[in-house]
């Protein structure tokens, strides 16, 4: 009993220490004045994290939009209200699925890459040598990635939503024959920019920050061996996924006035 208590204590201390290190890295990297000469680094990371994720985001967004239209149509047609299809799909995509699924995809595609890259830099002593050259790796390696995640994630989520809605309109309007005018006007009337779209964007910004933070920290804190990097990459994906889903719940709770 006593030993179990002690083990719980130890685990929580380790967890607290980890959180402390993660917070320290974030603080050190973000709250330092960003330098203009580091702008090319940021652009490179936006390319790595954002542009390279566009394809997977587009494909997933299209599929999910199309599926939502199929399933939604099946249910709505029973009540004769298939004209609300556009509205339903748009609301679900903009508020929930857009930010959440693109957050998950971002964690799998970009987060894992960031962890592996930084972990490898650590294992090959690149971070150490940078430090010995008087360059702070937190500023040169970590900060651009954190900023890039912050910038890129809402863009990806917006793209996801739009491509999803487009996919839904292809299925709903062009294939299942929902009246086009009703599809779009119900959407325009029911979706409100401030109370739906903006809240979705806020969610995606939060997910972007959290996922890149986890990815960067796992890479930076990894045990510099091949097993260590593999484990850290896995942890990035798992922790990010859980974080996105749990945070989504709380953000919804707070923002949509429950």
């Amino acid at each position: 009993m006593l030993s179990r208590l002690r083990r719980i204590g130890q685990y929580s201390l380790v967890a607290l220490a980890t959180l402390g290190r993660a917070g320290h890295i974030w603080w050190q990297a973000i709250w330092r004045r960003p330098r203009l000469r580091n702008l090319p680094l940021l652009i490179r990371q936006i390319y790595q994290l954002g542009v390279l994720s566009v394809l997977i985001i587009a494909m997933s967004g299209f599929s999910i939009g199309a599926v939502l239209a199929l399933q939604g149509y099946n249910q709505l047609v029973k009540y004769g209200s298939e004209s609300a299809l556009g509205l339903g799909v748009a609301l679900v995509l903009v508020m929930e699925i857009g930010p959440v699924v693109s957050g998950l995809l971002f964690a799998g595609r970009a987060g894992s890459a960031v962890t592996a890259e930084i972990g490898l830099m650590k294992a090959t002593e690149q971070l150490s040598s940078m430090e010995m050259m008087g360059v702070d790796p937190l500023q040169r390696i970590v900060a651009p990635r954190l900023w890039a995640g912050f910038i890129v994630m809402p863009i990806l989520a917006l793209m996801f939503s739009i491509i999803g809605i487009w996919g839904a309109s292809l299925v709903g309007v062009d294939w299942l024959g929902v009246y086009e005018g009703a599809f779009w006007s119900a959407m325009q009337e029911g979706v409100d920019f401030r109370s739906h779209v903006l809240k979705g964007i806020i969610k995606s910004v939060v997910f972007g920050i959290v996922v890149t933070w986890i990815a960067v920290f796992q890479g930076y804190d990894t045990i510099p061996t091949s097993e260590g990097i593999a484990a850290a990459t896995t942890r990035t994906v798992v922790y990010s996924a859980v974080a996105v889903l749990v945070l989504d719940f709380f953000l919804t709770l707070v923002m949509f006035n429950f």
């Binding site: 390319y47 542009v51 748009a90 939503s161 959407m187």
Partner: peptide, 30 residues
């Protein structure tokens, strides 16, 4: 090479802004 990356990233950011406008005007009827 740096140049082309800059252009691609610029396009990406532009696509983000366009997405926002499309969402605002076309989808939410702003």
């Amino acid at each position: 090479q740096i140049r082309s990356i800059e252009i691609i990233v610029g396009t990406f950011m532009l696509a983000g802004i366009v997405s926002l406008i499309v969402l605002a005007v076309q989808i939410s009827g702003f």
